[in-house]
Amino acid sequence: MYRFFVNAENILEDTILVTGSDVNHIKNVLRMKIGEEILISDGNDKEYVCSILNMDDEKVEAKILDINGPGRELPIKVYLFQGLPKGDKMETVIQKMVELGVYGIVPVSTKRSIVKLDAKKAANKVKRWNAISESAAKQSKRGIIPRVNDVCTFKQAIGMAKELDMIIMPYEEADDMEKTRNIIRDLKKDTSVGIFIGPEGGFAKEEVNAVMEENGTPITLGKRILRTETAGMAIMSVIMFMMEE
């Protein structure tokens, strides 16, 4: 069953209005018919099972058949602080992290980030990245659309992360796999975790120290050096496996 997202104001007493680009997708791409069922989410982990009542070029009206409560989301909020990678790697990172259950993504310009974006390019990138997040959320039947924040500096990222319950940083110079296992095993429900992933060149030593000054913990992901687009997915996969209910 296909999933779509709507704003809260589009949810009426017993019907929901789907507007925007999803109308064309339902009507002309999927070629759905009156009476077919779809899933609609309000972006807050509430899912509506609906049947299409009417549609035109501006909107699709769907009748609410059933309401499913929370259950698609992990009982923990994981934020990815991703050092800007080269090329289109960020798109892959966003798509896969959303599929795995990340709650939010913060693109970070670090000392060793090769990519440097001016304000206009950054705004266009963030717009595209959020579209990718929405598409991945629909495909994986997420209850929310994880937000991709504006590109920020490392200092700004630290300021955001210190408001979370825990900060972890996969780091090539860290060791003690048992320590990493214990950190993941000890994660609690209803907590927030920030994961810092460096760009292709990794984090500078002063950046690692800045994370540790905010009680962040360097962890190891094993003896192999993972690419920047792999590291976040590796740790997120473990967290998903441990926290899935």
Score class of each variant (00 low, 15 high):
P218D: 00
Y79A: 14
E134R: 06
G232R: 09
F196H: 07
N10I: 05
K138Q: 05
V49I: 03
I38S: 01
P107Q: 04
K125A: 06
S21T: 13
L53Q: 14
I132E: 00
A8L: 14
A122H: 10
T191W: 02
E207T: 08
L117A: 02
S51P: 02
R31Y: 07
S135Y: 04
E213G: 03
E47Q: 14
E61A: 03
I26K: 03
K205T: 10
G43P: 07
V6R: 07
V193K: 08
E13T: 11
Q156R: 09
S135K: 04
I76V: 15
T230N: 03
F196Q: 07
K223D: 11
I114C: 04
N130E: 10
L53A: 08
N44V: 02
V29Q: 03
S140M: 03
E206Q: 11
T153G: 06
N24W: 12
L187F: 12
D88A: 07
I184M: 12
M32E: 01
P70R: 15
R142S: 09
T230D: 02
M90D: 09
V211D: 07
Q95T: 08
K223W: 02
P107R: 05
K127S: 13
G35P: 09
V98A: 00
P85I: 05
N130P: 02
R112E: 01
E214D: 04
G216W: 03
I52C: 10
D45W: 06
E13K: 13
N24S: 12
E61V: 10
L84P: 09
R142G: 04
R181H: 15
E229R: 05
E61P: 07
G69Y: 14
G35T: 04
D186F: 04
N209R: 14
A234I: 07
G198S: 10
G69E: 15
G101H: 08
A119F: 02
E13I: 01
N124F: 12
K33N: 14
L30A: 04
H25F: 07
I197D: 13
R142P: 06
K59L: 13
R142M: 01
P70G: 15
A210M: 09
V18I: 15
F81I: 00
Y171T: 09
K189F: 11
N215E: 12
G71P: 09
V49C: 01
M55F: 15
I225N: 11
L80V: 03
G194W: 07
K141V: 12
M212Q: 14
T230E: 07
N215F: 13
G104I: 01
I158N: 06
K179R: 15
K59R: 06
D165G: 10
